[in-house]
Design a protein around this nucleic acid. Structure first.
Lengths: 189, 189
DNA sequence: CAAGAAAATTGACCTAGGATAAGAAATGAA
DNA sequence: TTCATTTCTTATCCTAGGTCAATTTTCTTG
């Protein structure tokens, strides 16, 4: 929790009261691999900040195939923002890929900090912008790179995920099948 | 310009001073079809709010192929956010697809409003969140839909763009070639 | 450690969509 | 209007990656 506070303080001035509020609403948790934190179809009322381990958000299509929207490692936030922003039920599932250490926030309480302590806004904006930029890049990569190039880039961006996650999850993030990913790997060796 | 102010006021309380500031930095402009507003490789210092017409942002890959990141129609913002956020030169080009009416903001001046009038933050956050959600959906669509399904969705999302834009731009947004798009269209008729 | 289960690999075949090229239709300038 | 240019369509052939199925390897867990 202190690590997050420090991160925030490196971006903005945080009053003692705001800091105390953050402490009061952030719950440090550890979840084992496989834990499902948000389930497709259910209400979303939590947002997670990752301090250790790795999670992912994904949706399941009509054929039962999974599609990974996001991997979240240390220092990233994860939730179903589509649902939160649109006040809808979850279209995504969020699950721990490995044993994970998180700080769990009630989404409404975290949002309320912006009303109580407007000084927090620039930090939230920073997070949103960073996220936005990473999505822009992802879309451009998806449009212009081959599967092999996307995989190479993935390895650079998430150098430690490969060991701890299944082939299938990576493939479902890259937009290919696990068999194709396996072939791509075989070619590299 | 007043239309934008009204939009903002429908989301947040805006003090007369903040409103005056916005007026002072927003320049109403009209550009003819084909105008390039931001050029790949150059510095980015503007952000555009669209009040009429249609623009797009795209990058050009090593083979000279274009990839459309965004179409912007009425009530949307467009710029190169990757460049702005990372303080880099433009990786994107932003161009008018049709004659367009815009409100042009100096990016720094627009950003400065957040310091001068923190009351503006929630609006900026609203815009960022909306953008984020649309990108999440786009990625999920790209991962799970066929080219034909993506095209159908595109027609729903941008019912008026098809007439005013070239086939190639739409194809480069969907991640297919213009020939494929032409075949998809032929099949529908 | 052994037996099952889960995950990854590999092979044979298939298909959506790409590449190239040529012709048809729009668009636009004179 | 006509000629030229740009855009769109169509046809042929091709390839990256998908599908399905059979192994092999790697995890689990008793």
């Amino acid at each position: 929790m202190q690590a997050l506070i420090d991160k925030i303080k490196s971006q903005i001035q945080l009053s003692p009261k705001a800091e105390a509020y953050l402490f009061s609403i952030g719950k440090v948790k550890e979840y084992p691999k496989g834990t499902i934190l948000i389930r497709q179809g259910q209400a979303v009322n939590k947002t997670f900040y990752v301090t250790g381990g790795c999670l992912r958000s994904f949706c399941v299509d009509k054929n039962g195939k999974e599609h990974t929207l996001q991997f979240a490692i240390e220092n990233w936030w994860i939730s179903d923002y589509i649902a939160i922003h649109n006040h809808e039920l979850a279209t995504l599932t969020v699950a721990c890929i490995t044993d994970s250490k998180l700080i769990e926030f009630d989404a409404k309480a975290l949002n309320h900090i912006l009303t109580l302590f407007p000084e927090y806004e620039p930090f939230q904006r920073y997070i949103l912008e960073r996220h936005l930029v990473s999505l822009h890049k992802r879309i451009l990569n998806q449009l212009q790179l081959t599967a092999t190039e996307r995989y190479d880039l993935f390895l650079k961006q998430y150098p430690n995920i490969e060991q701890s996650t299944r082939n299938y999850y990576i493939a479902s993030y890259l937009g290919i099948t696990q068999e194709s990913l396996s072939r791509i790997r075989a070619k590299k060796a």
